[in-house]
Write a protein that binds this DNA or RNA. Structure first.
Length: 464
DNA sequence: TCTCCTGGCACGTTTGAATGGT
DNA sequence: AACCATTCAAACGTGCCAGGAG
């Protein structure tokens, strides 16, 4: 497992919130998330990760596995994952490299995967790594199984959300803590384009052992593989940097020393063109990142990797004197806000101070009488919610920066924007379509009952 | 013609029921 | 009867590939 602190060299500037944390180790801003198997992810990322999407749904490989710390051990949380477009383009694989093939297709219904253990106390999430193994990706926009719908030949990256909630049925929404890992970005494909990715998958995925060249491989497999042996042999001789060079158009040389340079200069991680260049020219200009005061209750934290790039501009909306931000106001909240207001393009998870024990490993439990568990915040407007049907409580609209420019709510909300998806399928009974409009602003929200929650796309899936 | 998608296939892993031993 | 270990088959996950759609 790789600790957050491993990523520290990538960023400079004011000390991260965790380092400025006070005696209360369980403040909101002290949540930390680290990605497991970062090296594996990195290996894929350097080549250009591709994820197969199929109609029945396909698991990710590598799959998302994270470690959490800094949660309140006895407070309950729910964990969510969704996929957001990296940019506004569609790509094609042309002669061993990815090229922009035009504008992205309208965004499919945005769905969120709820970890099956949710809700669970913080101690549960922290005692072991949290795996999203069963998360599946699909290209079927009519999918009824709750899989995350993506467009083929588009780039995405997973976002991990932590929400403090007492239970699934009387959820009182708190601040979304959102984390992303640059190295987990991928291109959704219906068939692998890059043979190097295929080889990596076969080498590392136990389910694909049958396609490995080594030892006990069946002769049939060998025969099949023989057809592509030329490519694979060539691949096996390539260095990772060669992978990079051959896979990405627009990446012109100087990769020989890139890994080292990236360790030093973590902010300018624009290695994997064309994504980076495209984002520079489109995403940042299209998105009013950091400019929308409605997003003040969400935090999104980019967790950098040693060999990664900045997928696009993330920011933390912590500048408001809102109750949520006041939770961590004694240290991290305000500190991070001020920091990011000065460095708006980079928001990072606070570096883990090696000298500081992990809060869940040592020290008194905050669950004792002297450390009452703070109730999940329930503030009007903590999350923007719009209502699918008149007469029902508003549905949360999670305003999170989207490269498409409009906020991307967390999940399929009702009232889909007219231009966001052509011929939107009639939503399943409890799969609501996304409200991409910008009109859901700080609606007061009252938490509903089970029936109402069942309409939330966040919780409409069979994983719980 | 090209690109992308789909479904069938073979192979390996995972899972859980059935069985037998202690 | 209860518990544990082993076996085995079905279900599932995976990449390959031929063929079809646009």
């Amino acid at each position: 497992m790789q600790s957050i602190r491993d990523f520290k060299p990538n960023f400079s500037g004011p000390p991260p919130s965790s380092m400025a944390a006070g005696p209360d180790a369980y403040l909101q801003g002290n949540m930390r998330m680290t990605l497991e198997d970062p090296e594996l992810w990195k290996n894929f990322h350097e080549i250009g990760t591709e994820m197969i999407i199929t109609k029945p749904g396909r698991r990710m490989f590598p799959h998302c596995k994270i470690n959490l710390s800094g949660l309140i051990p006895c407070a309950k949380y729910i964990l969510l994952v969704d996929m957001v477009p990296v940019d506004g383009f569609r790509y094609k694989w042309n002669k061993e490299k990815w090229e922009v093939a035009g504008k992205a297709e309208p965004q499919p219904p945005c769905r969120t995967y709820l970890h099956p253990d949710s809700p669970a106390p913080g101690s549960h999430w922290m005692k072991q790594s949290v795996s999203f193994l069963k998360l599946k990706l699909t290209n079927n926009t009519l999918d009824q199984h709750g899989h995350i719908i993506l467009h083929s030949m588009h780039r995405y990256h997973p976002r991990f959300h932590i929400v403090q909630a007492d239970d699934l049925f009387s959820v009182r929404w708190s601040v979304f803590q959102t984390f992303t890992f640059p190295e987990t970005s991928f291109t959704a494909v219906t068939a692998y384009q890059n043979t190097k990715i295929t080889k990596l998958k076969i080498d590392h995925n136990p389910f694909a052992k049958g396609f490995r060249d080594e030892g006990t491989t069946k002769k049939a497999c060998l025969e099949k593989r023989a057809k592509t042996s030329d490519v694979l042999i060539r691949d096996s001789e390539d260095s990772p940097t060669d992978f990079c060079r051959s896979s990405y158009e627009g990446y012109d040389g100087e990769e020989g020393d890139m890994p080292k340079r990236k360790e030093v200069d973590g902010v300018k991680e624009e290695r994997y063109s064309p994504w980076a260049a495209d984002r520079e020219h489109s995403v940042r200009t299209e998105s009013p990142a950091g400019a929308d005061p409605r997003d003040i209750y969400n935090t999104e934290q980019l967790v950098p990797a040693p060999a990664s790039y900045q997928p696009y501009r993330f920011h933390e909306y912590g500048k408001s004197p809102s109750p949520s931000s006041s939770v961590g106001s004694s240290n991290s909240g305000s500190g991070r806000s001020s920091f990011e207001s000065r460095v708006p393009d980079v928001a990072t998870v606070p570096d883990h101070d090696p000298s500081k024990p992990r809060t869940h490993e040592v020290g008194p439990s905050p669950c004792g009488p002297h450390h009452p568990v703070p109730a999940p915040q329930d503030y009007p407007g903590v999350l923007n919610m719009t209502m699918a049907q008149a007469g029902k409580p508003a549905v949360i609209g999670h305003h999170i920066y989207s490269p498409y420019g409009a906020e991307q709510p967390l999940g399929q909300w009702s009232g889909a924007g007219p231009a966001q998806y052509p011929h939107p399928p009639p939503p399943p009974p409890h799969h609501l379509t996304t409200d991409y409009s910008t009109q859901a602003v700080h609606h007061g929200y009252h938490h509903g009952n089970v029936a109402e929650w069942s309409q939330y796309p966040l919780f409409s899936y069979s994983c719980w």
